[in-house]
């Protein structure tokens, strides 16, 4: 069987003696659409930093496409959309096309200008997120949801096999958030991209992902699609026990 695209094994991490990730294991296989759920302070942002190689695990190991993240030299096969990045671009006089094209850096090559091939790739990436008619617009003129789609197009422009997204629907209204998840599902099903989305919004993610890993207090449980639905129903009946912590305790029993 093919090795998983993301493999996290016995990983722990601590900030100054404070254990934030406690012996976590999880995998994402090719073709899957997986969510990493958790509230603020659950350790999911730390987990993402470990995946991106910004931090190194205290114990265990992380593999992204079979490699240690810190040693990956070319990220063109892995797309990453950071949280709330678009807000920082407002006021920057760059067009959607210029921003997406910038990420083709390695393919265009040093000291060279983008050719027709690069232009076609940019067009294709914008088509995938339904933003092709906005290519000449300034990024600052777009709505939050549209900016988020542009950043997704930028992550897709190198046609990566694996896409990581950090809270893609933060600051986006409910209707656009749903559209964004639908778009991700389409990329997963039609383009065969493997997707890991980090989010605190379990209710949104539940309808779309195959599986989710819930984090709380540095530990993790895995919920299959059906389990997520029953969990959401459970929360609906017991609104006082909404925290994912409660799932972990219930599972332990």
């Amino acid at each position: 069987m093919e090795a998983p695209l993301i493999e996290v094994k016995n990983v722990s991490f601590a900030y100054n003696q404070n254990l934030v990730i406690d012996d976590i294991n999880f995998e994402v296989n090719r073709g899957e659409f997986v969510a990493l759920l958790g509230s603020n302070g659950s350790g999911k942002s730390t987990m993402l930093k470990l995946l991106l190689g910004e931090l190194e695990p205290l114990t265990g190991f992380v593999r992204l496409m079979g490699m240690e993240p810190g040693k990956i030299r070319s990220w063109s096969n892995i797309g990453y959309v950071a949280q709330n990045r678009a807000a920082a671009y407002t006021g920057f006089p760059a067009t959607v096309e210029e921003i997406v094209q910038a990420h083709l850096y390695e393919q265009i090559g040093r000291f060279r200008l983008p050719g027709l091939k690069a232009k076609a790739k940019v067009k294709h990436a914008l088509e995938m997120v339904d933003m092709q008619e906005y290519s000449k617009r300034l990024i600052g003129e777009l709505s939050g949801g549209q900016q988020q789609r542009v950043l997704l197009a930028r992550a897709l422009v190198n046609e990566p096999e694996l896409v990581l997204l950090d809270e893609p629907t933060t600051g986006v209204d409910a209707k656009n958030a749903q559209a964004h998840f639908e778009l991700l599902r389409r990329l997963n099903q039609d383009e065969g991209m493997t997707i890991l989305v980090v989010t605190h919004d379990m209710a949104k993610a539940a309808d779309y992902v195959n599986r989710s890993y819930c984090m709380e207090g540095g530990t993790m449980v895995c919920l299959e699609h059906e389990q997520m639905e029953s969990e959401l129903a459970h929360r609906h009946r017991h609104p006082d026990r909404r925290s994912i912590d409660a799932i972990i305790t219930r599972k332990d029993r």
Binding site: W75, S76, R85, F92, A94, E98, A102, L104, Y105, E106
Partner: peptide
């Protein structure tokens, strides 16, 4: 190209190589 991407977003520029 390099200066544009660094001015826009240093972290993403690094990921792009």
């Amino acid at each position: 190209k390099e200066l544009f991407y660094i001015a826009l977003d240093e972290a993403s520029a690094r990921l792009a190589g």
